[in-house]
């Protein structure tokens, strides 16, 4: 069964079409990444699926259930790590977790147990009774993620979860996200970090201007272009050519030797695919 199914989702703000009818689905247990430039509509998509923004049209289902007809049931299944921090700064970490647990109908006992087990990963135990206001940005983000996991959502929405985190914490978080997936949670992730999508996602969707450009496995997206890329420095920027194997790429470089331009040979990555399919950089 599909964990999430989105059909022709639309949203306009005062005549401006932020989502122009997008459709996609998430298989149960997969990590699905929405990749796109600023203003593409990633956050809008997540906000609609979490009940924060009114849909302008279309349908959406969690495990076959129409979420616009059953908003409260749908919200029970979902966990959200929003792009913008939304913690109570003047409450302690524990109080933030407590309120969240009660909002999702957990008992005090469940909140304590689940909170305890999440402390392992989050490293927040020592700060549990500190006000959120006194925590660093990265710690706040970890509180945000811990909170979203507290009610054991079956579908997790992560809107740029690692923004502003140092590389160590980011890598720790990637590990955590993988572990959450292994426990059977389905994850929809948005990110600006290509390597994040490449590392985490089973499938990637490129979104641009409120439209889904293409959806596929990362390796399929890159192999559509080739295996190797040659960047050629030009007066008006960078041109990239793609080659099926190393030999043909090297032949090309040799043929350009006379012109004296700077070229670099490297492997094709997901960023190439994004640029190729959307005509833009992320």
């Amino acid at each position: 069964m599909m964990a999430v199914e989105v059909k022709d989702l639309r949203k306009s703000y005062n005549g401006f079409e932020a989502l122009k009818g997008i459709s996609f689905h998430l298989e149960k247990g997969e990590i699905f990444a929405l990749l796109g430039p600023n203003g593409a509509g990633k956050t809008t998509t997540i906000r609609i699926l979490c009940g924060l923004t009114r849909p302008g049209g279309g349908q959406a289902f969690f495990f076959g259930m129409d979420i616009f007809k059953n908003p409260l049931k749908a919200k029970k299944l979902a966990g959200l790590v929003p792009q913008a921090l939304n913690l109570d700064l003047d409450l302690t970490v524990w109080e933030n977790l407590l309120i969240h647990g009660l909002l999702f109908g957990l008992s005090l006992q469940e909140i304590k147990e689940q909170g305890q087990s999440l402390m392992e990963f989050s490293g927040l135990r020592a700060r549990l009774h500190h006000k959120v206001r006194t925590l660093s940005g990265g710690m706040r983000r970890r509180v945000l993620i811990t909170r979203a996991l507290l009610h054991r959502p079956r579908i997790l929405f992560l809107d740029e979860p690692t923004v502003g985190l140092d590389p160590h914490i980011r890598r720790k978080l990637w590990g955590l996200i993988k572990r959450i997936q292994q426990q059977g949670t389905t994850i929809l992730l948005t990110t600006h970090y290509i390597e994040e999508a490449e590392f985490l996602a089973n499938r990637v969707a490129f979104i641009d201007n409120g439209t889904l450009v293409i959806v596929d496995k990362p390796q399929n997206l890159t192999s559509r272009l080739g295996k190797y890329a040659v960047d050629i420095v030009q007066e008006d920027g960078l041109e990239t050519k793609y080659f099926p194997d190393r030999q043909s790429a090297e032949d090309f470089i040799l043929s350009r030797r006379e012109t004296g331009t700077t070229v670099t040979l490297r492997r094709v990555n997901l960023e190439d695919a994004f640029v190729y399919f959307t005509g833009k950089r992320v």
């Binding site: 979490c50 009940g51 924060l52 409260l72 049931k73 919200k75 029970k76 979902a78 959200l80 929003p82 913008a84 921090l85 939304n86 913690l87 109570d88 700064l89 969240h100 909002l103 999702f104 109908g105």
Partner: peptide
């Protein structure tokens, strides 16, 4: 809660009538 801390969105995303 709504405009400064955005906690209102945390409540909106919760299954609370």
């Amino acid at each position: 809660a709504r405009f400064y801390m955005r906690v209102f969105e945390e409540i909106q995303a919760a299954p609370v009538s």
